[in-house]
């Protein structure tokens, strides 16, 4: 019996699912479009809520795929169903016949420049959450000035925003903003730090504690209100206008750095593959699962499975759990077919 399983996307989700399927005896073929494994996790410095290093999580995930065939810098050229197997042609010239295909294609960060009023890509001192993680990892970013005195974080950039076309919550940005705000305070103890939020969605274990710590120990100022516009002063600082809805007043503050918490969108690379075999997507742009409670890992097309952020924003622990659940779903599918 052909026990091939094609896994598309070599981020943490694809890695975990591949490792689990390999342990179950399946012949896993994992492809990753980038030149390295790890997805966004490979570009992240530390993880909430404890602040452990991203590489401490990523390295075991990579180590666990020992024995799995994987191809880097490889994309799907075409995919189509032949009888009961998917014929997948890869950009490296290899063709794979696979009874099951697992989409772990993940997410793209919302392009922050689309929120034009925030000035990303226009003003020198506006960066994103991803840029800041890179700064934490490398200590280098010309947009981060030496000893910034005032730093702002804008939550929900491209999330919960009809104008941006994304009505949903991206789930991880609140906790990421609180984590990054504390890290900046630790790096620049003299800096005043503001978080502009709509609601703080601290739903996970330990998140609320992190939020309280941010207020008590780090003195982060949380302002409930959306930023309306950002502009640049003569000194190249950014002038932020917002509303403080709790005090009921408009607010204007000059900052040395503004960090935009860009949300999640279904990855363009995953969408491209989905369109080849007409995988359904919901109004939010993410892939539609067969059921909303009992069949979260299945597509309505037999043999196609989903895990991770390709079906909606998720935290890393949720993503890894879905990877394991998808492996079980695929195992059950093979058993049922036989």
């Amino acid at each position: 019996m052909n026990k091939n399983v094609m896994v598309i996307g070599g981020g943490p989700c694809g890695l975990e699912a591949s490792a689990q399927l390999h342990k179950m005896g399946y012949n896993v073929i994992l492809i990753e479009k980038e030149k390295q494994l790890g997805g966004h996790l490979a570009k992240w410095d530390r993880l909430f809520p404890e602040g452990i290093e991203a590489k401490e999580v990523l390295q075991p995930l990579v180590d666990n795929i020992n024995g799995v065939k994987y191809f880097l810098d490889t994309e799907v050229v075409s995919i189509n169903l032949l009888d009961k197997e998917y014929n997948v042609i890869l950009s490296n010239g290899i063709t794979v016949l696979s009874k099951a295909v697992l989409m772990t294609s993940g997410f793209d960060l919302f392009p922050a420049e689309k929120k034009e009023e925030y000035g990303y890509g226009i003003y020198d001192r506006v960066i994103t959450n991803a840029d800041l993680e890179k700064f934490f990892a490398t200590g280098k970013d010309p947009r981060v000035v030496e000893n910034p005195k005032r730093i702002g974080f804008v939550h929900c950039v491209g999330s919960r925003d009809e104008k941006a076309g994304n009505r949903y919550c991206s789930k991880v940005c609140c906790a990421t903003a609180v984590k990054q705000a504390c890290e900046m305070k630790a790096l620049f103890p003299d800096a005043e730090i503001f978080c502009f939020y709509m609601d703080l969605r601290m739903f996970g274990r330990g998140y609320e504690d992190m939020y309280l710590k941010a207020q008590k120990d780090y003195g982060i100022r949380f302002i409930r209100g959306r930023v309306s516009e950002v502009s640049e002063t003569l000194e190249k600082q950014v002038l932020v206008k917002a509303e403080d809805t709790l005090s009921g007043k408009p607010l204007k503050v000059t900052l040395d750095l503004l960090v935009l918490m860009a949300g999640m969108q279904n990855a363009k690379s995953g969408i491209r593959i989905g369109e080849m075999i007409s995988m359904k997507r919901s109004d939010d742009g993410f892939f539609t699962t067969k059921g909303s409670i009992l069949s979260l890992q299945e597509c309505d097309k037999a043999g196609i499975f989903y895990a991770g952020a390709c079906t909606g924003p998720k935290t890393l622990p949720d993503t890894l759990n879905e990877a394991r659940a998808a492996a079980v779903s695929i195992h059950n599918y093979f058993n049922k077919e036989n």
Partner: peptide
């Protein structure tokens, strides 16, 4: 100010 950013929007 990043002029190329404005050009992109324009």
């Amino acid at each position: 100010m990043i002029y190329e950013g404005k050009q992109k929007i324009w």
